[in-house]
Every structure is written in structure tokens, then in C-alpha cells.
Design a protein around this nucleic acid. Structure first.
Lengths: 225, 225
DNA sequence: TTTCGGGCATGACAGACGTCATACCCGGAC
DNA sequence: GTCCGGGTATGACGTCTGTCATGCCCGAAA
């Protein structure tokens, strides 16, 4: 009997997936949650073999949750189940230690099959998406450029961005300009769309967490002119 | 026995919903499709009592499909099942003759309950969303403003928009400026986001189809200066 | 019939945006 | 130890964007 925990933020979809899996005699849904931040405790408590993770979730996204599951629960495998076939998502899922990556576009029958294969020690990835992810390579954006782009996605002005990121307006302009050139587009709006489509935006793109920053904002040589 | 047709573009979600409904003794899923444009024929052929429609679908969106179901199949009721609780969606769903409007955020048990209530002649709407929709009123955007905004969503420049819409650049600027002011925002990016969040963007917002336009683009008094 | 709202256009203007050259500071690579 | 990439900053420049005033054409409402 394979023990499965479901993490998916849309309650109706979560319930429907549970119903789908309950029809399989060798699978058992032993836990459900709509948040990413209690996946680990739930999976541990219920001794799950498999956790099925959506990416968009409150609390902690599915990729981060997969990282924690991989680190803290040795006997438990994570499968990402997502709406978006973005190359960057697949890359980060694999980097996070996920053992499977499934699209909601796939036939319903694939789900149980994927769970069984992963439970048996295999890996499940869509070959076409894998090829695309490999051919496109990693994000060319630096962590900072990515941050600025993310902050710009809401339509904020340069001045707004400078305030919210504690940077000078010129620096914001520089990062945006750099991102725009790297992505081969003509303005920040296109840059946001391209980066989003490739899955290069959501969480931290690369490098470790930018906790405090290497240097306080403002205190530097010629600051405060 | 209530006969249900499912229209939802994500195959896995569709299958999962079918599994969910198959557990109800008084419901029967008699047809499934991932496209909006064969909902009517499928529902007619299978003599459905209820069609469950996602909004985002290829071919024909759920709102348009609901319109056709309402017009062509007197004995059949449409329920919209969507991810987004956008006021404009609810308004258009009701205008399209839908008899129910459900969010995928709602508990799984609500689905069967909603189907039963609608089959029994009732109407199912989330009261909070209905209140919001009523309080916000209809879209303040004219059909043209909406079109321009939609076209601008991809990050195109004014010149691009003018070309693709067969308008002068000045006119495009005027429409954008007007939309920006009506929505109370500061630039086109924010305007797109606000309009999208309220559900004012997707299909035709109001008025009839802008087939040829009232006047050819360019042929007018002082055209071609 | 006159009025009014909507679509379209033009021209002018201020402010926002994107680019570029330049410079300093840091840390890692060679 | 030097070089180089990344982050930050400044100033200058040209272009794009958003606003406004103004005008014309149309159809519907008053």
C-alpha cells in the first residue's frame, strides 16, 4: 500500500484528486493540505511514501516544500504536479530533489502510474519538457536582476522600485536595462512576461538567500550626494 | 439520476472531477471534453441535465459556451466552475444564462451539492462574490479601450499597437490614457492588471462584435496628412 | 434638431524610461 | 596579487509614454 499526501491549494481540485486516487486499490491518501508549510510535518506524521505537490501554494511553494521533504524525510519522495510546463520549474524541481514532475494537462491515468513508478524507485519526467529545459539552459539573470524584475511586474515606477528595494533609481534602471538586454526584449513588460513564461521569476533564481545583503543600503563611499 | 457533462481543459483535473462525481449515487458523468466548442453538441447528444464549464478553455471559453447552451438546449443548465473569483466573470456568467457559479477554492463537497441544487431548479452563487460584483458595477471601459488594453497586455509599444489595431499612434495613446484614468492607475501595466483582476478583459466586454468597425481605418476627412 | 457620448485624429509638452560611459567596492578565480 | 563579474551609484542623452486641448464624424437620445 503506497501512502500518499496531497498538497494542493484549490480545495475542490484537491478533493477531486483524492477521489481519483481512492479508486486505486494500491494507493491510499493519508493526508491532505492546502498549504506548503505544513507538508513536512504532515508527511512525517502520516509516514507518507509520496507527497504530491502543487507549485502555487500559500505558505511555502511546492518547490520549496520539495526541498524540505527531500532534506528532512529520507524515505519520502516528492512529485510536483503543476499547471505550467515552464522549463525553469522543472529545473528547480529537480534541483530541489523532486523525483517526479507532472503536468495537470496529462491524462488522469498518468497520475497513479507516476506515483507507482516513483514509489518503485523510478523518476517521472515529461521527455519533451525535459528536452526543452535542457536546451534553454539556466536563467541568465542574476539574483538582483530577478528581484528587480519581480518587483517591476506589478507596474511600479522606477521610483517605487527604488524605494521598495532600497536602491538608487539609477541602479534600478541599470538592473532593468541589463535584464531587458539579456532576455532580448524591448521593455520591462516584455521582460517580465518572458521571464515568467520560462519560470525564472517565482522564488530565488540561484545563489543563496539575500537575507540582509552584503552591504547596507546607502552606506558607501559617495552616498548621499 | 442527474446527467452531467464536464468541460475542463486540464485533463487531469477533468478526470479527477469525474472520479469525484462518480462517487455520488445520484449523479452520472455522461460526457467529458477539454474544449469549449463541442460542449453543445456533446450535451445534446448525451442529453445532459447539467454542464459543468471551466472558463479557460480552447475553442470557446466557458462563458461563451454557457451562452450557447442556454440558447440551444432549453432543458440543460450551465454551471461555471472557475479558479478566479473575478466579479466580471460572475456578471458575464449570469448574463450568459448560467445557473451556477462555483470557485475551485470551494470545498469538494460543494460541487455535488451545487449540481443537485441547480438540477432542482435553484441557482448557486457565492454570496460574497455576488455582493462584490454588484458593488463594483460594470466595466467603465468602452469596447475600444478594452481592446487596446488587451493588446497592450503583451508589452507592445504604442507603434506596435497602432499597427496591429489599424489606428493612429495618437489614438492609441488617447485610448490608453482614457483607460488609465478610468481605472485610477498610473500606467498601462497597472491598468492591465486591474482590468484583468476584475475580469474586464477576456472576451468582448460589452456592446456587439466589432466586426468591420463603423468606419474603415484611415479613410476619413483629414486622413493621410 | 440639437445634444451628447464614443471613435478617431493631430500637435505639443512634461515626465518616465532605457541606454551608455564611468567609477567604486567586494569576493572569488587564476 | 591581479583580474573579473556582480552590486551599487552618477550623470547625460534620446526616446517612449501619458496628458491635454482641439477638432471632425457618426449614431442615438432628448
Amino acid at each position: 500500500m503506497i501512502r500518499v499526501v496531497l498538497a494542493e491549494d484549490q480545495a475542490m481540485v484537491r478533493g477531486a484528486l483524492a477521489a481519483l486516487l481512492s479508486m486505486e486499490p494500491d494507493l491510499e491518501v493519508v493526508g491532505e493540505t492546502g498549504r506548503g508549510d505544513d507538508v513536512v510535518s504532515l508527511a512525517r506524521e502520516r509516514q507518507a511514501d509520496i507527497v504530491l505537490l502543487d507549485i502555487e501554494m500559500p505558505g511555502l511553494d511546492g518547490l520549496q516544500a520539495a526541498t524540505k521533504v527531500h532534506a528532512e524525510l529520507p524515505g519520502c519522495r516528492a512529485i510536483i504536479l503543476t499547471t505550467f510546463g515552464r522549463p525553469g520549474y522543472l529545473q528547480r524541481a529537480m534541483a530541489a530533489g523532486a523525483t517526479g514532475f507532472l503536468l495537470k494537462d496529462a491524462p488522469a491515468s498518468d497520475l497513479a502510474a507516476a506515483i507507482r513508478r516513483v514509489a518503485a524507485g523510478g523518476v517521472v519526467v515529461d521527455p519533451a519538457l525535459a528536452a526543452q529545459a535542457l536546451s534553454e539552459g539556466l536563467s541568465p539573470l542574476t539574483a538582483r536582476e530577478c528581484e528587480v524584475l519581480k518587483a517591476a511586474a506589478g507596474g511600479a515606477s522606477i521610483a517605487d522600485l527604488a524605494r521598495s528595494l532600497h536602491l538608487s533609481e539609477g541602479t534600478v534602471r541599470n538592473h532593468l536595462s541589463s535584464a531587458i538586454q539579456k532576455l532580448g526584449v524591448r521593455n520591462r513588460t516584455e521582460a517580465v512576461q518572458v521571464a515568467e513564461a520560462k519560470g525564472w521569476l517565482s522564488p530565488a533564481p540561484s545563489g543563496r538567500a539575500p537575507a540582509g545583503g552584503t552591504m547596507g543600503p546607502g552606506e558607501r563611499g559617495t552616498a548621499d550626494p
